[in-house]
Design a protein around this nucleic acid. Sequence first.
DNA 1: ATACAAATTTAGATTAATCTAAAAATAGTT
DNA 2: AACTATTTTTAGATTAATCTAAATTTGTAT
Lengths: 222, 222
Amino acid sequence: MITLTEENYIKTIYQLGRYGTLTVSTNSIAEVLETKASSVTDMVKKLAEKGYANYKRYQGVSLTSKGKKIAADVVRKHRLWEVFLVEKLNFTWDEVHDIAEQLEHIKSEKLINELDKLLDYPTHDPHGDPIPDKFGDIKKTDKILLFNLSESSTGVCVGVKDTSSSFLKYLDKHQIALGSKILVVSREDFDDSMVIEINGSVKMSISQTVANNLFVKEEANT
Amino acid sequence: MITLTEENYIKTIYQLGRYGTLTVSTNSIAEVLETKASSVTDMVKKLAEKGYANYKRYQGVSLTSKGKKIAADVVRKHRLWEVFLVEKLNFTWDEVHDIAEQLEHIKSEKLINELDKLLDYPTHDPHGDPIPDKFGDIKKTDKILLFNLSESSTGVCVGVKDTSSSFLKYLDKHQIALGSKILVVSREDFDDSMVIEINGSVKMSISQTVANNLFVKEEANT
DNA sequence: ATACAAATTTAGATTAATCTAAAAATAGTT
DNA sequence: AACTATTTTTAGATTAATCTAAATTTGTAT
């Protein structure tokens, strides 16, 4: 059996390592999980013993295919529950993370399959992140950061990097949502801010920080 | 903060003590939770220290009002989730217990209130057990065991005592469900079995065990 | 009232997950 | 190549929840 704590470590390794493709450092895991690096070392040894991770001292950790499957399942559950909370229980996108963090550990295959069906098989969560399928596979989209969109180009908002409540509320306030059409009107070299136009109407200036936390899908030039 | 384990002990004390009205023994708690009495003693001391229970060595445990509130909340969540699983996710009444056992520990007031609303404020779970309201109050029904129904009396099935999968499947097989009308046709002194008629059509013989695990609400004599 | 059986508690040990502080390895810079 | 700063690991301790085995209390029956 796998414990809740182990699941959280595995998920963190998965996400820090770009869905399990990279090796990650114990320190970075410790930072995300708000523990100490020494605790991470201990746990990572255990995960390796149990066959969920590859680990060589001082060389970082990666997931085995067994570990990746577990991680993808947890992420799948997390994101499906987020969709449920927003679609069925009237939550807003900035309220769902902490609850999904709890719900992601519920064990029942039927439950998650039925939930998937109830929600009509969504492919992305309320923040635009992709939902792994039953087999742990993820559809990759060619999203880029708004910051990397050039002047007079247009993109559709497809996700956020920072999912903090404060950032999401900022976006709400300025009517930026998934699906919004964003035109880069001009860029300011001085402080890397930019002026954008949202859905062809509202014009506003955004900071580099905002531009670096918003994913868009670039639209073909007109 | 209250741990998951503490919550489970509190819930058990609540249920063994008839919704917190009686004092219960450490042994009975140990049996339900499948632990040893010595573990229970330790935990019960801790619960008393934290203000959730009243405890005097060798004299059993009861809940404080603070403990009762926590227990009622957990039971409320458990039963609401059971309704959700049956009503929205196509589970049958014999499949929901173990999953609800996990879901009952999810912490979010908004979540449970919204769930309550989504389900249209149900008063009973799929086994006929009452759902405590937001304040922890429970509507008591005057249900009796089918075993205590006299010959030629009629009752409506309103709940089960044994919620095991095997018993529930037995009921399904014989078309006995919540709401079924049951007439006691005759009783057999020899082995305490009885012949019943279900919904005015099917006649069958049931054992004492079955009659002692089915709750009915007696109907006024015709 | 005593003696015995059953229930309960205590004492001491174990496991999982964590921590601090010290030691070891790695990586970067001159 | 040597020094230093950073990262990582080890060693030893702590906490929550549990266990076994022994000791204590309670209740019952003669």
